[in-house]
Design a protein around this nucleic acid. Structure first.
Length: 167
DNA sequence: ATTCTAACA
DNA sequence: TGTTAGAA
């Protein structure tokens, strides 16, 4: 796989993100004391770690949960109520996540544009639906035979997208 | 330097 | 819940 695609997909891959308690605290505005307390109450959880370290690490999912709880607390809900609301929201979010996960089948360049491969367009599974956001912020679609997609969209050079500078 | 737990002038 | 202490 080419590096431009890897760069973009790494940005999209939230599973790699791990936060320490101080980081999560700053990100969410929730004190470290609260985070430990919420965990003891079972509202959130930190990741189990294989190494012998005790310092908590949090996943991106925990970040989302904490952010939601914080939001509801700021709206005036009690902590248990805020947690209930977070759980409810989380269900909707995972549904949305499934939706976009089903719709996302990779990225590629074509005609000097970055396209999202949205999977098969037809029930016969011969054509692919592509989408890209133009300079006008409108989404443009294109249907293309699968073979053509394989030919043209996989030919992405690393120079097409500037990556982060190498230290 | 950061995080841990336990405790509270 | 905040804020400490002393340890890791």
């Amino acid at each position: 796989m080419n590096s431009a695609k890897k760069n973009i997909e790494n940005i999209l891959n939230t599973d790699r993100f791990m936060f320490r308690i101080g980081e999560l605290s700053q990100m969410t505005g929730v004190s470290a004391r609260q985070l430990r307390y919420w965990e003891k109450k079972g509202y959130i959880q930190s990741e189990a770690r294989e190494d012998g370290q005790r310092a908590r690490v949090y996943s991106f999912k925990s970040f989302v949960k904490v952010s939601l709880i914080k939001e509801f607390l700021d709206q005036g809900f009690t902590l248990p109520a805020a947690v209930d609301k977070m759980t409810e929201q989380g269900k909707r979010m995972s549904e949305l996540h499934q939706l976009y996960h089903n719709a996302y089948h990779g990225l590629g360049f074509y005609e000097d544009q970055l396209w999202v491969n949205m999977g098969y367009f037809d029930d016969e599974k011969t054509k692919i639906l592509l989408a890209h956001v133009g300079d006008d912020d409108d989404v443009h679609y294109r249907v293309m035979p699968e073979e053509e997609v394989a030919e043209k969209l996989e030919k992405i050079g690393p120079e097409t997208l500037p990556g982060p500078p190498m230290p």
